[in-house]
């Protein structure tokens, strides 16, 4: 039972970790939070669902659709909430993305209806059984995909020219722009990428939980943010660590308290870390 919870926690942690990376990507560049992250996740899930139901049952195509929708909408949000508002204190951008969050959620709910759509299951057969704990192929896939994504991101950041530009901008916006870097393009790219990442995660989550609805993004987004703060929002490894830890803690906490309090644990961790250790476990000790 314990082991099973831990395994579920790790699988879920992969989702949190990927969302957390998206948060720290944007944070690292702009010191901003995209509040509509959960809705990008939800839109990705709907995109995946539409593909699977109406186009092709191919999972790869569905994941790609989620990725693309996240990319496009993420790009759009950056244009309206960040680019158009350059020079305005960033709390305005944050509130603007709160507006986006509600707008997208309610639009989806009027477009697709309020009821939860069910997603066909993929790879739900048991892959391994360790001490009575079952690991499904899907869980293996989720962890594998998460790890591959993280490795790809690391390669992108540390082995490519684009990654170098992103890091330069994150380090010092002004100098980077004086050096002739296309700062706008870099931030726009990072923003779209973070959107694409959560869109992609949305499809995975839709399959894992076998459900798609308009409100599905809110809680995972807050948890992704929690995971990022937990591990250290300024570092991508921190975000990953935070994601897996949060997934494990949350699933194990069910043993100690009623499942109604499941989300409670995450919110509590968020508040406690914001108050006492806003740099997270791995974050650098800069004043945030």
């Amino acid at each position: 039972m314990f082991l099973q919870q831990l395994i579920n926690g790790i699988a879920q942690g992969s989702l949190f970790a990927l969302i957390a990376i998206s948060f720290s990507l944007v944070w690292g560049l702009l010191r901003m939070v995209n509040f509509a992250m959960g809705e990008l996740y939800m839109l990705g899930a709907y995109a995946g669902w539409l593909v699977v139901m109406h186009v092709t049952p191919n999972l790869g195509v569905a994941l790609f659709a989620g990725f693309m929708v996240g990319w496009i909408v993420g790009w759009l949000i950056e244009k309206v909430a960040f680019k158009a508002m350059r020079g305005v204190p960033h709390i305005a951008s944050l509130v603007c993305t709160i507006g986006f969050s509600f707008f997208l959620k309610e639009t989806a709910s009027t477009l697709f209806g309020a009821e939860t759509k069910s997603m066909p299951s993929y790879y739900s057969q048991t892959a391994f059984t360790i001490a009575e704990a079952n690991i499904s192929w899907l869980q293996v896939l989720m962890v594998a995909v998460a790890i591959i994504m993280m490795v790809l991101l690391q390669l992108l950041f540390y082995r490519t020219k684009v990654g170098l530009a992103v890091r330069a901008v994150a380090l010092d916006y002004r100098t980077a722009s004086l050096m002739g870097m296309k700062v706008d393009r870099v931030t726009s790219l990072a923003f779209s990428l973070s959107g694409a990442l959560v869109g992609f995660v949305g499809v995975l989550a839709a399959i894992y939980y076998n459900a798609v609805n308009a409100g599905m993004g809110f809680v995972p987004a807050i948890k992704g943010f929690t995971a990022a703060v937990f591990g250290g929002i300024t570092s991508i490894p921190g975000a990953i660590l935070g994601g897996y830890l949060l997934g494990a803690i949350e699933n194990l906490s069910v043993k100690f308290m009623s499942s109604g309090y499941r989300d409670f644990v995450s919110f509590l961790i968020l508040i406690i870390f914001l108050l006492f250790r806003p740099n997270g476990i791995l974050g650098k000790k800069t004043k945030l």
């Binding site: 943010f225 509590l268 968020l270 108050l275």
Partner: peptide, 11 residues
């Protein structure tokens, strides 16, 4: 400020 928004939201 950004963290205050999330802190109050979590609350």
């Amino acid at each position: 400020q950004t963290f205050l928004v999330f802190g109050t939201l979590a609350f």
